[in-house]
């Protein structure tokens, strides 16, 4: 099956896949210097690489913020409602 073979190949050449992913990221940052701005809505639209930073920051904020909220307050054992509900 071609899908399984592709994935096996990618898993075998993991460092190559990672290098090419990082290369794409670098290309995106460099390429952003020449992209014309037709719709400038606010300051961030004019800074090259702003949205890359935004994406990375958003990801970190969402993961760390939500997990913190979960551990600080929201997490309960998985049978929380079943156990309490049957009492």
């Amino acid at each position: 099956m071609i899908i399984v073979r592709c994935i096996s190949w990618m898993r075998k050449h993991y460092s190559l896949v990672r290098m090419s992913f990082l290369a794409v990221l670098a290309l995106l940052l460099i390429g952003d210097l020449w992209v014309p701005r037709h719709h400038v809505h606010f300051l961030g639209d004019e800074i090259p690489g702003f949205w890359a930073l935004f994406g990375l920051g958003a990801c970190a904020l969402i993961i760390i913020g939500s997990k913190w909220l979960g551990h600080a307050w929201l997490f309960r054992p998985e049978d929380y409602y079943e156990k309490e509900g049957n009492k």
Partner: peptide
């Protein structure tokens, strides 16, 4: 360009912080 930057750098963040995302057998209070 804007979309690709947001998405791929989110992906970078995902793989950097993957340890934090490992599933926990818990429910979140809603």
């Amino acid at each position: 360009m804007e979309s690709m930057q947001i998405l791929l750098f989110t992906m970078l963040g995902f793989f950097l912080l993957i340890k934090k995302l490992y599933p926990e057998p818990k429910v979140g209070l809603d």
